[in-house]
Design a protein around this nucleic acid. Structure first.
Lengths: 226, 226
DNA sequence: TTGTCGGCCGATCGCCGACAA
DNA sequence: TTGTCGGCGATCGGCCGACAA
């Protein structure tokens, strides 16, 4: 996925991804501790080495096909302790300037958003900042538009401005989205508007409950010790 | 699963399972041809051997956890061409006599049985032979009873005798069963009454359509060439 | 501004007997 | 005997504004 989407979805609590060619320490023990399954046939040397000097040779951005959660794959190459530095390479897309800009708005789903009654309260500033404006703000004519998730799948929603007091709502299409993505209250949606006005949506699952079950990590390190 | 249930579910078109210690030919080519995936790292010797003399060292009866379909695992041991025979061992349970007896009734599901309206027409002879009798045949008081599938899971059904003309029907609980087992018209249910009156149910899927898709076989041979 | 809820209407579910194959 | 279907009541889905937080 594009790094700009990764940044918007990862949130401010996530570390910045490392720069290519920067030098880092890799801690095998820490990696093993956090792995879902004990690696097999690992050299005993690995267990006796506290850390390894490495160079970041690639950083790639992904979204989990099942959960939509974003993560990194960081390719590391071991280097001799005193080898000379390589010039750091900033993210290619980052140099382009404008197309890295993404307007984004994150909302934590309320109980009403995620219940089985099928509606979503669109925060006012989110509607104004991200979503295409309704044809006439005063009318309550609904209109449909579509958002694209991080895998490129489009989702249709009916967008209407109604109620007393008036507010933006998603109705038809919303329940299908909640059910398909298995969203629950407490999860966060990140709405992102690309420079061409296209809207994308990412998901940040609520990790405060059901912790330690899935053995999943937001950042997957390693690869490169072929 | 008990061999008596396997027999009832496999139907008359299936071969009888082989007797333990009987001598058979194993055809590696035929097995490879029918396998879902090409085996890796197979000795070239296997490809050049048309068949192998074997002794049946074990026959085990299973039901697929997902589809409920029954199958065998037959353990073969290669023997030298002229080795002496072992005394054939009939199935242990078969010697016991009575507890091998199972009354069974098979019904192919009609369109009405498998549609989304949630009812099942119980054939008269099936109701009389297999299911516990209703408290009073004349009344239309419904009663619930449960059947157990081949994995030991119990399923509750409402059994009622009604309509003009009167007939046995399953109502409440039936749709849940159809949906859970993903049954379609043309599939066959096998109802089996054990000697203690407990009712079991097996499934034979309709193989005449969607053939050659799943790479599944009713009889899985091999194992034993460690 | 926005989360929750009672009301309400339409769609669907699933039980019923009628009827015919 | 039993497969299919129209009828129907009950339930559910999902859109609405009211109202309060």
């Amino acid at each position: 996925i594009p790094p700009k989407f990764w940044r918007a979805c990862a949130g401010i609590s996530a570390q910045e991804p490392p720069i290519v060619n920067s030098r880092v320490y890799y801690f095998p023990q820490g990696h093993i501790d956090q792995a879902a399954s004990e690696p097999q046939n690992l050299s005993p040397l690995v267990y006796s080495t506290p850390f390894i000097h490495c160079r970041v040779s690639a950083v790639n951005f992904f979204a989990d096909p099942n959960t939509d959660e974003v993560f990194l794959k960081i390719l590391l190459r071991p280097v001799a302790g005193l080898a000379q530095d390589f010039p750091p390479i900033a993210d290619a897309a980052e140099g382009n300037g404008d197309d890295e800009k993404v307007e984004s708005y994150a909302k934590v789903l309320s109980l009403s958003d995620a219940d089985n009654r099928g509606g979503f309260s669109v925060p006012k500033s989110c509607a104004e900042m991200i979503f295409p404006p309704l044809n006439s703000e005063d009318e309550i004519l609904p209109q449909t538009f579509s958002m694209t998730d991080l895998h490129g799948t489009a989702w249709e929603f009916r967008h209407i401005y109604r109620g007393t007091p008036k507010r933006h709502l998603f109705t038809t299409g919303w329940k299908n989205f909640v059910d398909s993505k298995i969203l629950i209250s407490g999860d966060t949606l990140i709405f992102m508007k690309d420079t061409d006005g296209k809207v994308f949506v990412g998901i940040r699952r609520n990790m405060s409950l059901d912790e330690g079950e899935k053995g999943k990590e937001e950042v997957v390190m390693s690869e490169g010790f072929a």
